[in-house]
């Protein structure tokens, strides 16, 4: 079964009705890593938000199915429990709530939903300890309030850590590379790569090609003005890097079938 199947998805901003997504078609199968690229304002983050159920958007047309379920009918927390994880571009601070406590609450909520026994404090800490090594996370950060006072790199590593602990079926990484220096980028990317296991799907959203030097995608899509205008393999990213987005914007838009074909290839 397809992990994610998006068909002709249109979405607008709730407040002013401005249409951002103008017909997205995309299929992600288990184990595939898709990169979604595009210039600022093309709708990359909006797609991530709509898929994860962030309030403030209205879907006006089309559908999104996750493991056959109607994703758009589910509240945000149900999508998370079913296995969709969004690594935020701007992770949110929650003062007074320790990172560890937050993550344990989240893990146990998800486990309960999946019919798994809840983890006690000792088992959880063992799990956390193991995953923290993946992203070279220091213990002090685990005991601080969620994201409060974290540097940009620490926040992004914290996102990857949460992803590792929550073990999602589909991870959406929203500009995980933004604001990171090269060392922080390498750490975050190696954490993500460690989570590529042949079953987990990933949608990696980025503006720049450099992240894709570390996370090698199976497919690359280019988003422009709310539509996927070109799809290809990892070389498309390199081509984009060399020619810039204006090159794509001049091309005629790809048809839905072409995109589906690219994704299915």
């Amino acid at each position: 079964m397809n992990l994610l199947e998006i068909t002709n998805l249109h979405a607008s901003i709730e407040e002013d009705g401005h249409e951002i997504l103008k017909g997205i078609d995309l299929v992600i199968r288990p184990g595939e890593v898709h990169a979604l690229m595009g210039p600022n304002g093309s709708g990359k983050s909006t797609l991530a938000h709509v898929l994860s159920g962030r309030p403030g958007y209205v879907v006006t047309q089309g559908s999104a199915r996750f493991l056959g379920m109607d994703l758009l009918a589910m509240p945000a927390e149900m999508r998370a429990r079913e296995g969709i994880f969004l690594a935020f571009q701007y992770p949110v601070e929650i003062p007074g709530v320790s990172n560890t406590y937050f993550l344990r609450t989240a893990v146990n909520t998800v486990r309960k939903h999946r019919g798994q026994p809840e983890l006690d404090a000792i088992d959880f800490l063992a799990l956390l300890d193991e995953k923290a090594k993946l992203v070279e996370m220091e213990e002090t950060l685990l005991n601080r309030s969620v994201n409060e006072g974290f540097s940009g790199g620490e926040k992004k590593r914290n996102e990857v850590l949460q992803m590792a602990v929550l073990d999602p079926k589909l991870a959406i990484l929203d500009e995980t590379d933004s604001g990171l220096d090269i060392d922080a980028l390498r750490v975050a990317a190696s954490g993500v790569n460690a989570l590529r296991d042949g079953a987990r799907g990933m949608l990696v959203i980025t503006h720049y090609q450099r992240l894709l030097d570390y996370i090698i995608p199976d497919f690359v899509h280019v988003l422009s003005d709310g539509k996927i205008v070109k799809s290809g393999d990892k070389n498309l990213a390199k081509e984009l890097e060399a020619k810039g987005y204006s090159w794509i914007e001049k091309e005629p838009p790809a048809t839905a079938s072409a995109v589906a074909g690219a994704a299915a290839r």
Binding site: R54, A76, P95, G96, V97, F102, T105, T109
Partner: peptide, 28 residues
Amino acid sequence: GEDQLFYCRQRGLSAEDAVSLIVNGFAK
């Protein structure tokens, strides 16, 4: 914040639990 609530919900917490968590953090 709406974004605090959404962040918690995206990690699987219900809105009620998210509010309780945020309030307890505030009062910690």
